[in-house]
Simulated assay, not measured.
Amino acid sequence: MINRRFFLTAAATTAAIGMVPRLAFAKAATDRRFVFIIQRGAADGLGTLAPVGDPAFTAARGILAQDFANAPRLDGMFALHPALGRIAGLYQAKQALFLHATASPYRDRSHFDGQNVLETGSAGAYQVKDGWLNRLLAALPAEEAKAIAVAVTVPLALRGQRDVASYAPSALPDADDNLLQRVAMLYEGDRQLHALWSEAMATRALTADMAPNGAAMAARGGAGGGAGLARAAAATGALTAKLLSAPGGARIAMIETGGWDTHAQQRARLAGQLGGLDAMVGAIRDGLGPLWDQTIVLVATEFGRTVALNGTGGTDHGTAAAAMLFGGRVQGGRVMADWPGLAPNALYEGRDLRPTMPLDGFIGGAVASHFGLDPQRLMPVIFPGTATRAMGGLA
């Protein structure tokens, strides 16, 4: 291990992962940054962004509707969960945009399959071996095609032909300078490993003063209660911002968050999770400083949750959810939705929020606009096998 506070890996992920054609449609390099925050476990979009203007909302959600009695309204239909104070401020500043009743092409309710579709960008589970975010790197100029995962291992969305580093804290003992020097000498003759090791050492030096446990706690979700989770999430956000701000460093980052599978006692658990997300996004915004104006942050989950509560005060696996965009380049202050309604006869399979907006079109439109790419050429690359068109006017 490199030191007692951090575990650092530089992962070469090129072997046996499938071939991506060399793309030639990237424009000149810019100073833009992109962050993808994945909510593992199926986050409740109805509990995040509530359709309080829907006549069926209160009866359909039961006790969960009480959280929105005095919540800030974004418009005549939707209100934001009170735990999302920083995000509400971004919305007022027109730096937050929400998409509701959205879903990937996946229509079953398995976490593993749903996350596979979300991360590979494919039309079905296990049809593609690499991730949409790694394929995006091939469309960017070399100066921008640098990514890092704030995670113990590289998530599937970032796996592929392009080398990607991962960085996460650890409580394991320090390695002394002699060991580090010997490893550097061992890798010196290998062009690929030497480059990866050099990047790892640069990241280690950059983050030497960061808090030791923040990213790990935020990834687990729920550690240390609501306040502890918020502190951990803020530390992860600050770490991410620092990695993205370093000269010559990563331009793209992915953060894994867990704990969104709220089968029981959802009201308190979801409030804590959302408070953590709010703290994370706020720390990214604060840490990036002027770079925030060149940044977008995407938040998405594999699917939503049931409209009605179950017998333990929670919700079960559903279908449509909510996705979010934050940043200085976002054309925000809006909720995008083709609202299907929560009346019993409007629900998907009689239980779920019906999906009406394509998540892949939202993601593709956001990154194409942000990086100045042709959406018609980009969509088949990052979302193979789908016929969805990229949404316009997002960033």
Rank of each mutant, 00 (worst) to 15 (best):
G311L: 03
P358A: 05
A219Y: 01
T240D: 13
T319Y: 02
G393I: 05
G89A: 07
T262I: 10
H263P: 04
A368C: 06
A308P: 00
D177P: 09
G45A: 04
L46G: 00
A59K: 15
D176F: 02
G160F: 14
A395I: 00
L244C: 09
Q273N: 12
L64S: 09
T295G: 02
L49Y: 00
A123T: 12
Y348M: 00
R107M: 03
G275D: 08
D163A: 10
G361A: 13
G121S: 10
Q95S: 04
G350N: 04
H263K: 07
L133H: 10
Q192K: 15
L136V: 10
M19I: 11
I37C: 02
S110T: 11
G124M: 11
A321F: 02
I148A: 02
R231T: 12
G226P: 08
A171T: 11
D278L: 03
M217C: 03
A241E: 01
S122I: 09
A168F: 06
A10G: 14
E199I: 05
Q66S: 14
L325R: 08
A230L: 05
T319W: 01
L243I: 07
A346W: 02
A42M: 03
P344A: 00
G364L: 13
M1L: 12
Q265D: 11
L186N: 06
G214Q: 04
F25Y: 13
P21M: 10
V330C: 07
Q39E: 09
G304K: 14
W197Y: 15
R5W: 07
A216M: 14
L180A: 12
T306H: 07
G350Y: 03
